[in-house]
Simulated assay, not measured.
Amino acid sequence: MTLRNPLLSRRGWLGLASVFGLAALSGCSASGALNALVPSDSYTLRTDLAYGPQARQRLDVYLPLGRRAPGPVVVFFYGGSWTTGERETYRFVGEALASRGIAVVVADYRLSPQVKYPVFLQDSAQALRWTFENLDALGADPRQVFVMGHSAGAYNAAMLALDPRWLTGAGLKPAQLAGWIGLAGPYDFLPIGNRDVQVAFEWPGTPADSQPLVHASKNSPPALLLAARGDTTVNPVRNSEALARRLKTVGVPVELQVYDRVSHVTLVAALASPLRGLAPVLDDIARFIAQARA
């Protein structure tokens, strides 16, 4: 059943955002609440597809309706400090992009403490390889493949795009990407203070080349970096703004958008139809993809 929502006032947008943020902080299924509010008639869903033999090497696919020619596909990685996350809770991301004619792959990956860096990058690269191997089934153009992530997932996407080691290990190369999109990504986070992240990266033995910022080069694919100005989880100045400057310095096309009315959490939540009034996240992503493939 499709749920159609009346237009919300500015107070309504902010109220929903507050509920989402509070739910996330209290451990409730805020994503589940958002998923119940987004349309279900803008995509075809294929679930629990394996890209590897491990239990968490699974993905879901959102195919836009009515697409008559091969078009773009985005492989999305969620956040959660590399310790939590489930692909099912990001249906609102799949629906958002599918509603703009973009196929979406939402991939799980193995998490800490069961695995450590760089296993989650290796999994992410394998999910991207699966995507390239299934472009025909996805109705996707090999020249229009993008990676995208939020928070820890933006780190995964950045490393696939910037550090050739991970895609080379999967038989691919960053030059095959039309571009990449990072939402509130940590791109320069040494030393590590967060205990969960310390475990995931085996701090203090974390190698310096684990940081996306050091891999920015003239060969990097085009980038769209989105951040919340008031983000208290991932500092936008040290991370998104610094990486944008580095990419510009080496001549890579990069666009930086820093929004005022969202937080670390509601930045990605603004993709959901009930919260799109908070920031033009979906519009900016769709425009970047359209320009990158033009």
Rank of each mutant, 00 (worst) to 15 (best):
D188C: 04
L172M: 12
A158K: 00
T206I: 10
L121W: 08
Q211K: 12
L128N: 13
A154T: 09
K173S: 12
T168G: 11
P191K: 06
A184D: 00
R110H: 01
V105R: 09
A158S: 02
D163T: 05
V105A: 09
D108A: 15
E88N: 07
K116A: 08
L213S: 14
R91L: 14
Y187F: 15
F132M: 14
M148K: 10
R195T: 15
A157N: 07
E88M: 02
Q126M: 15
F92G: 00
V115F: 01
L111Y: 02
A96G: 06
A178T: 13
N194S: 13
P191R: 01
F189T: 02
A98S: 15
E202L: 06
L97V: 08
E86K: 14
L177R: 01
P113K: 10
A137R: 15
L167A: 00
P191H: 03
H150A: 13
L111Q: 15
S217L: 08
F120P: 13
G169A: 15
V214T: 15
A103Y: 06
G149H: 03
F189C: 01
Q176C: 11
Y90G: 08
D188I: 04
L135Y: 07
A154D: 05
V214F: 09
S124Q: 07
P164T: 02
V197H: 14
E95Q: 08
Y187C: 00
M148Y: 12
Y90W: 14
L160T: 04
